[in-house]
Design a protein around this nucleic acid. Structure first.
Lengths: 130, 130
DNA sequence: GTGCCTACTTTCTTTTGGAAAGTATAGGGA
DNA sequence: TCCCTATACTTTCCAAAAGAAAGTAGGCAC
């Protein structure tokens, strides 16, 4: 292990550009509307079934829910458990990694809630120009 | 002001569903790949010109850069300054609000850098199944 | 005149997303 | 027996969004 793990970002330590590319790709994958909403739902309600999620996540289509859950499973964020019964029962829950991502995004939820009004005012001001 | 501003999320305090809808919408707007990458660039390099940004943000097209910057401007995240010269010179920089969003996303960057390998391993394991 | 510079805009094509219908399977009711 | 229900998808079709590339404006150097 050549370097100890960093805790916070330090702009004075240049990052290996290959690492930066990988980080950008991962951020692009993970910073997705549906991934975020599913993550939040699983954080708040723990283990969920497919239909439960599709009811809880506002506006998601079944297609996007399947895609999002598969991608999250592949990335190690959720575990998918199939119970071989009829009608089918499939449960999804967060892994430790998924939970840690949820915590990392926590600041963004807090920010959004705290700044709703500021953004609304900025939009009104912008739209009123000209 | 009916309630004091919350600092952290408390699952025991139910949130007004209308507020939750607005927060979801705002998250959906702001948690966008290009918004994040532009935000990072402006955090790291301060004021930037259009072409500079399009060079620095990997893979963005001019069209998406314009769209992203306009949306960020409308939301009060960046300021756009036009210098009436020829050839044109337009500078973009973060507002306080934009900077605070950057800080809120900081946890996600740290998470991504810290967990690159774990995600890579999860993907390999997933792809090796069957 | 021709070309150059920047910050876009426009046009066209490809990719992605959403809505709705279809699939498989077993049990229960008429 | 036939039909209906329930769940977790998959498929199909169409609209919306994103990407690539070319076009625009307008002063200045040559």
């Amino acid at each position: 292990m050549p370097t100890p793990q960093k805790i916070a970002y330090d702009p004075n330590v240049p990052v290996d550009p290959r690492v930066e590319t990988l980080v950008n790709e991962l951020i692009g994958r993970v910073a997705d509307k549906w991934t975020l909403l599913v993550l939040e739902e699983l954080e708040d309600h723990g283990t969920c079934r497919f239909t439960e999620l599709s009811r809880r996540v506002p506006g998601i289509s079944q297609k996007m829910l399947t895609q999002t859950l598969r991608a999250m499973e592949r990335d190690g964020l959720v575990v998918r458990t199939v119970h071989p019964v009829v009608p089918p029962k499939v449960e999804y829950c967060l892994t430790d990694l998924g939970h840690s991502l949820g915590e990392a995004f926590c600041g963004v939820w807090v920010w959004a809630e705290a700044n709703l009004e500021r953004v609304a005012r900025a939009r009104m001001a912008f739209d009123a120009r000209d």
